[in-house]
């Protein structure tokens, strides 16, 4: 018993002859392969956290490729879309407007003029004021149409203005049968009236030659 008092008592497990556990090499290799696959997958489809990449698209490069190959939009579609976003709030989906406040575009004598000079000016610079009569009905002076030709509010391009005017003027569903308008016509009038900062009044627009 003497020896047991001299030696420290140990509760540690005895070495039973087993080797230290080692991580097998194949597991390390598999881990690295998974990591590699994950990195490649993220690189290809993660879009690098871009706010412009949503499923099912995978990268901004892909979106750029698509955008470049799409071709120009159909002007008829463009016109309907611009109308749906810009004009519809006041002139309504059926182009009947609101009596007393917003004039109708359907069957309107203003829309169906042979030349579109006045209509282009109205869209570019806005319109409103005393004495407006459309289809025999008087309209309030309080509601003035916004200038859609330049920022800050909307800023439609020549193509868009031409498309939407063509859409409205040629919409047979609304009883309109007027000739289409080209972006060149809009550009010519935009350049000519670039110094015009106020919206047109009915009295002023009547002095404009619609063909000019």
């Amino acid at each position: 018993m003497k020896s047991s008092t001299n030696q420290p008592v140990s509760n540690a497990p005895q070495d039973l002859g087993a080797k230290d556990p080692v991580v097998p090499v194949w597991l390390i290799v598999v881990c690295f392969l998974l990591l590699y696959w994950g990195a490649v997958y993220f690189d290809e489809r993660g879009g690098w956290f871009s706010t412009q990449v949503y499923t099912p698209y995978v990268s901004t490069e892909q979106l750029n490729t698509i955008a470049a190959m799409q071709g120009p939009p159909d002007p008829r579609v463009l016109g309907a879309q611009v109308y749906g976003r810009t004009c519809i709030a006041c002139h309504q989906g059926n182009a009947m407007g609101t009596p007393g406040t917003f004039p109708p575009l359907a069957g309107s004598d203003w829309v169906n003029e042979k030349e579109a000079g006045r209509m282009i000016r109205i869209v570019l610079h806005g319109f409103g004021g005393p004495g407006l009569v459309v289809k025999g009905q008087p309209f309030s002076t309080a509601s003035v149409m916004t200038a859609f030709g330049s920022p800050p509010l909307v800023g439609l391009t020549d193509e868009e203005i031409a498309a939407v005017i063509t859409y409205v003027r040629g919409n047979t569903e609304w009883g309109n049968h007027a000739a289409p308008v080209t972006p060149e016509q809009v550009k010519a009038i935009r350049d000519k009236t670039s110094s015009h900062s106020q919206s047109y009044t009915p009295a002023e627009i009547m002095t404009v030659n619609p063909a000019d």
Partner: peptide, 18 residues
């Protein structure tokens, strides 16, 4: 740009000639 599509053409032509 982030949600591209080609809008379908309207069923009937709205660009009636003068």
């Amino acid at each position: 740009f982030e949600a591209p599509l080609t809008p379908p053409a309207p069923a009937k032509s709205t660009n009636a000639p003068a």
